[in-house]
Write a protein that binds this DNA or RNA. Structure first.
Length: 690
DNA sequence: CGAAGAGTAGTTTTT
DNA sequence: CTACTCTTCG
């Protein structure tokens, strides 16, 4: 109906199924897109189609991705098709940023002031540490995860109380309650609330739902298999009965069950929308057949709801190489050398190569080995920019200026850099604040000798609050008990400069750390502030908007220039959606790649425990599948006979996945390897001379 | 209050 | 091995 006058305009690179997915607008649409089958093409082409041919206004189209990077790439690709004019106003964002935008508009309905803070996982852990009165990190993380899973299942503490399985969870319920109360007292939300609160509001308030449904005329969702119950409901509330949406996903690439995602949402979609149109994309445009065949064999071991078989026209390709290594150290060195040799042999770029692994700490040895050979690399995944101490320190200052009720930010800012405020002062403030139900900041401003006896400490506290108040005035904060008003957006940039001066952070770093560390940290700090100032002037943002946005943005985005010519090191999770001509998949061992979780099986139900184990194994298999399907031309697998764990060597066995792919864990002939070893050594010498 | 030192525990994946 | 914590001393 829509496409009759447009077929001539179609670009040649789109196949029949893709064409169908792009043009289907008669109702809800689910695209089951196998790895490398061009799912991003479908989404971007569909947005372009809506804009160009169907004359949808850009601001009524919403596209949701899981990462900021994916969002940026998507709008970039759309821009290339339709140009900047039609793109203006298009909403491409992550679930979390969309939730944030929602809350910035509807904060009052959620019982929040405009200046609410966003807590990252570190802040949440800190609160739990207080509530549980323990420093046991494993315990804290377990509790945090349990609460997070409840939130992602849209269960408030009362509802969660109905589903608790044991006494331990019973205790966590009460922690959950206090945790929520604490967040509210701090005027803060955590990552989960960013989606949970909007979803609750939408389902409880019909007129609000109407308002938002009028805004969202067409919705597109990427990586649909990774949505959790809460996100599913959020989408449902936004699209309602009109159901104009396209979801794109692949159940074989569902790798986020551990954070509440459920590929069942693919099935649920068919149930909730009986007129759902399901379109499969089965032609793979990425990998040669040797790689695809192995991937298909592996994933066939998993039960599936939607049968799907990938094929490609890209030729057989080289056989997949499997290497057994003596140790993890040997593996890292060997991979680095092989990689350098392969680059030489194929006259390829460094950026054509990726080394993928299950867990972050595996990157350490690799980095060392690559550095030794002067091979440029970038690490993705791993520690996020915002987990770095220096960044958290500085953001704490901005947070406490924007939201004085943010106690964790207050504590962090007050003690970093050191300024004469220590444990005992904070303790005194804490008890006083708890006593009269005020924030630490409010208590500190009014602190007299009855609260803090030592006059030196009291002076330190007041000089700190004076400083904060100075910047609050500068930011245009009208500090009253009602909503804070942020009038002044013009001098955000100046404020940032002055702040950095006033707290003397550079000095602090060089005083406390060795030269090298201080240098990198100060570099990070400058990067952060340069970025902040950029954003502030470019988008005309107030300090508040800036701070809230920061919590969600990953700074590693703007490293494109460095990535142009470097080998990519990445966890399997972070590699999803990427592709490389040459891929090294390392550490393919029992216990590491099918990762053995510390299965704290509850003795009461053995049957369900083994069911859980089976599901975990299937997820690991999908993870392996994701890794394999990143490779276009060649794939190299390796595993280690022994691996250093803590301070002892642990003996390892090759992963069952290798056999499931129809490959031999041990290389066939030994003389072959020793010969290769000699060649590699020569190459190594050559490389080190360069 | 905070710096320097000794000791100890730790390893899944992330918005 | 290292990153972080707790202790002790100035």
């Amino acid at each position: 109906m829509h496409d009759q006058h447009n077929s001539s305009k179609q670009r040649s690179g789109i196949n029949a199924s893709q064409h169908q997915a792009v043009h289907y607008l008669d109702g809800p649409c689910l695209v089951l897109a196998g790895a490398g089958s061009g799912k991003t093409t479908v989404i971007t082409q569909k947005i372009a189609y809506l804009l160009q041919t169907c004359s949808y206004p850009a601001h009524k189209i919403y596209a949701i991705t899981f990462t900021n990077k994916a969002a940026r790439e998507m709008s970039e690709r759309v821009r290339k098709i339709v140009g900047p004019k039609l793109l203006r106003g298009l909403n491409v964002s992550t679930f979390h940023s969309l939730g944030l935008r929602f809350l910035r508009i509807e904060h009052a309905k959620a019982g929040l002031k405009a200046n609410f803070s966003i807590f990252d996982s570190g802040d949440s852990l800190g609160i739990l540490q207080e509530l549980l009165a323990t420093t046991d990190k494993a315990r804290l993380r377990a509790v945090a995860q349990t609460i997070s899973l409840w939130k992602n299942a849209l269960l408030d503490p009362d509802q969660a109380a109905h589903v608790v399985k044991n006494q331990d969870e019973q205790q966590i319920i009460s922690i959950y309650r206090s945790y929520q109360a604490t967040l509210r007292a701090y005027q803060a939300v955590d990552f989960d609330d960013l989606i949970g609160l909007p979803t609750r509001l939408l389902s409880q308030q019909p007129e609000l739902r109407q308002t938002w449904q009028d805004r969202v005329h067409y919705l597109l969702i990427d990586e649909y298999q990774d949505t959790n119950a809460c996100q599913y409901e959020f989408i449902r509330q936004l699209v309602d009965a009109r159901a104009m949406f396209t979801a794109v996903g692949d159940d074989d690439q569902a790798i986020y069950a551990w954070r509440g995602a459920s590929a069942d949402n693919l099935k649920n979609l068919a149930h909730d929308y009986p007129n759902l149109k399901v379109i499969k994309l089965e032609q793979n445009y990425r990998s040669v057949q040797s790689i695809l065949a192995a991937a298909n064999k592996l994933i066939k071991q998993n039960p599936k709801f939607f049968e799907k078989s990938l094929w490609s026209e890209l030729g057989q390709g080289a056989a997949i190489a499997v290497s057994a290594m003596d140790s993890d150290l040997h593996e890292a060195e060997s991979i680095a050398i092989r990689l350098a040799a392969a680059r030489f042999e194929h006259q390829a770029k460094w950026s054509d190569f990726a080394i993928l692994y299950r867990s972050n700490h595996q990157a350490r040895l690799l980095e060392q080995a690559l550095r030794n050979l002067r091979i440029p690399y970038t690490v993705s995944g791993g520690q996020s920019f915002f987990d770095k101490t220096e960044i958290r320190d500085l953001l704490a200052w901005l947070r406490v200026i924007a939201n004085p009720a943010d106690d964790p930010a207050f504590i962090r800012a007050a003690t970093n850099p050191r300024r004469g405020i220590g444990q005992s002062s904070l303790q005194a403030l804490g008890t006083a604040a708890a006593h009269c139900g005020q924030s630490l900041f409010a208590t500190a401003v009014n602190a007299d000798a009855t609260i803090i006896a030592a006059s030196r400490a009291r002076a330190a506290v007041h000089s700190f609050t004076d400083l904060i108040e100075h910047f609050q005035r500068m930011a245009g904060v009208e500090n009253s008990s009602t909503d804070l008003l942020y009038v002044d957006k013009s001098n955000t940039s100046q404020l940032l400069d002055e702040l950095l001066q006033a707290i003397n952070y550079e000095q602090f770093l060089y005083d406390n750390l060795d030269e090298r560390q201080a240098q990198t940290r100060w570099g990070n700090a400058l990067d952060l502030f340069a970025w902040l100032k950029d954003k502030a002037t470019e988008d005309d943002l107030s300090l508040l908007e800036l701070v809230q946005r920061m919590a969600l943005i990953n700074m590693l985005e703007r490293q494109d220039d460095a990535e142009q010519s470097s080998v990519k090191l990445s966890t399997l999770h972070a590699a999803k959606g990427l592709e490389f001509p040459y891929v090294y998949l390392i550490g393919i061992e029992e216990g590491l790649l099918p990762h053995r979780g510390n299965s704290e099986s509850i003795p009461s139900c053995e049957a369900s425990a083994s069911l859980v184990q089976e599901q975990q194994l299937q997820e690991e298999r999908r993870l392996m599948y994701v890794g394999i399907t990143r490779a276009k031309l060649a794939l190299h697998l390796s595993w280690c006979r022994k691996r250093r764990r803590a301070r002892e060597y642990v003996y390892c066995e090759p992963s069952r996945f290798i056999k499931e792919m129809g490959l031999e864990p041990e290389p066939q002939s030994t003389d072959n390897t020793s010969q290769a070893g000699a060649t590699l050594n020569r190459l190594k010498n050559l490389l080190q001379k360069n």
